[in-house]
Structures are given as structure tokens and as C-alpha cells.
Amino acid sequence: MEQLFQRGQGNFPSFPDKKLAISFADQLFAFLFTPRRDSIEQLLAIYEGLRDIFSSLVFDVLKDEVIAKQQAVVFFDAIPDIYQWLLKDAAAIVEFDPAAESIEEVLVAYPGFFATAIYRFAHQLHTQQLHTLPRLFSEYAHSRTGIDIHPGAQIGTSFFIDHGTGIVIGGTAVIGNHVKIYHGVTLGALNVAKELAHKKRHPTIEDNVIIYSGATILGGNTTVGNHSVIGGNVWLTHSVEPHSIVYHKSEVVVRDKNPLPEPLNFVI
């Protein structure tokens, strides 16, 4: 029982506040993409408040106030570039989704865009080698959208997710620019042995690839060449050349379940 009361003390690992991390992710998303009528002074105050929250989250893990503030500087210095990348992601959704009527609709109502935004925040944290916090971000997006993107994945610009429910993207996946992914897609590993933890286990998807719903692409040596189309429900464990079309062929038989009508007898 004594160990339970010593949790978080001594050499036991410390964790960021989960509720605060989720609140920070929501506030940062709202700060970047919710229309505001605040003055410059009010926006600066919100911005500084976000920096303070971030520093607190990092301090919870590192227990070093100076390093926590340095990490906050690095993260917020990256925000303008992340914001530009996300605008390109939103523009891709507007361009290719016939149901999207405006970029404003995408920013506030599309789960695929929200998951992409949280991924880009988490990926920045991952590059700063901040452990646990990026996973809290990604798991929050997963629970809210059904889209599971590991913070370690590398995803290029103009990334398009349509619907999105059931998408899984592994931590060593590499995705190029202008890639479109539909719901139920898995970019996963062929082998989940622990000794492969630091090896590339997930596929590489080159530029301008479309992956339709239900497709599963596995393996660190698997590369989908640029401008390829992967059809729905495809199971792929080997590389395909650029400009390929890969599809799953299945036979569908349709017959009338009603009995044939009795032949007509004509009496003349």
C-alpha cells in the first residue's frame, strides 16, 4: 500500500495532467481556427495564457522550469508553420470533397481536419522529444474522431482525410504530399515484435496517392509509388510502382428471390 501513496514521488515517472492537456489542445485549435473579434491585446493575452499552460504541462514531466519554458518557445515558434500546413490541409478537403461547401465548414465541423490538426501539434511535440504529452494529444483526437494517427508518423502537405472513422496510421509511416485517405484505412506493421520498436515497421506512401476505404497496407519495406490508386478493401504487403491501380476483385451475384411466374395458357 505504501507504494500507492508514493506514486509520483522519488524515481517514479511523472505525467502531464491529462485534463489540462486536452483543454490545451482544444484551446490551441480554437485560437487558430475559430473566428474572433478580440483586440490585439486580448489575443496576445490568450496567446501568453496558452504558453503558460504548455510550460506547466512540460514542467509536470521534466520538473525543470527553465527547460519547460525553453520547450514552450520551441513549440510556439513552430506554430506559424504548422498553421500554414493546416490551411493547405483544409484547402485540399474543400477542393476534393464534394460535400464541403466552404473552408469555414471544414475548420469547425470536419473530424478529419481536427484529427490532422491535433496530429500536427503532437508531431511537433514528438520532434521535441517530449514523451507522453504527444500521445495524450493523439489519443484525445482518436477518442473524439475515431482516427488514430501516431505522433511519430511523417505526413506531408495538403493531407486529405474523408470521413475518417477507423483510420489507423502507425508511428513509422511516411506519407507524402497531396495524399487522400478514406475511412477504415490501416497503415500498419507486419510484425509487432518488441525488438522491432526502433525499426521502420509501417509503409511509405508517396505523393498524390489515393487510398480508398477499408484498404490495409502493411510493412516497413512496403512503398506505394506516387500517383497510385489503392482500391477499397485491398490487403497490400508489398510495394507497387508509381501510377499503379490496385484493386480487390470480388464476385457479387444478384438474383431475384421471387419465384418465376407460372406460364400463361391461352385458350382460343
Rank of each mutant, 00 (worst) to 15 (best):
V108Q: 15
D52W: 01
Y110G: 07
T132V: 15
I118N: 03
L136H: 07
V58M: 14
Q70P: 03
V74K: 15
I79M: 10
K69C: 03
V61M: 10
V73W: 03
A99E: 08
F96S: 14
A122W: 00
D89W: 00
D60E: 13
Q129V: 13
F76T: 09
Y110E: 08
Q129D: 12
Q70E: 14
E139M: 04
S138R: 00
L130A: 09
L57S: 07
V66H: 09
G112C: 06
L62E: 12
T127H: 11
I118D: 01
Q124W: 04
E104S: 14
D52E: 13
A78V: 07
A68K: 08
F113L: 09
D77E: 13
P111V: 02
E95M: 09
S55Q: 09
I79A: 03
E101W: 01
D77R: 08
Q129M: 13
Y119F: 14
D77Q: 14
I82V: 14
L87D: 03
V66A: 12
F96V: 11
V73K: 14
S55W: 05
A90G: 14
T116F: 00
G112H: 03
A68D: 02
V73N: 11
H123W: 03
F59R: 08
I118C: 05
F75W: 05
H126T: 13
K88T: 04
Y110F: 15
L107H: 11
E101R: 14
I118A: 06
Y83D: 12
F75L: 12
F54Y: 11
E105D: 15
H126V: 04
F137L: 02
I93M: 08
Q124G: 06
Q124R: 14
A122T: 04
V58C: 15
I93L: 10
A99M: 08
P80V: 03
A115L: 00
L86S: 09
Q71V: 13
L86Q: 10
D60I: 03
A72W: 03
T116P: 00
P134W: 02
L87S: 01
A78Q: 09
I67L: 12
P80Q: 07
A109G: 12
E65H: 11
L87A: 03
Y83Q: 12
L136R: 09
E101L: 11
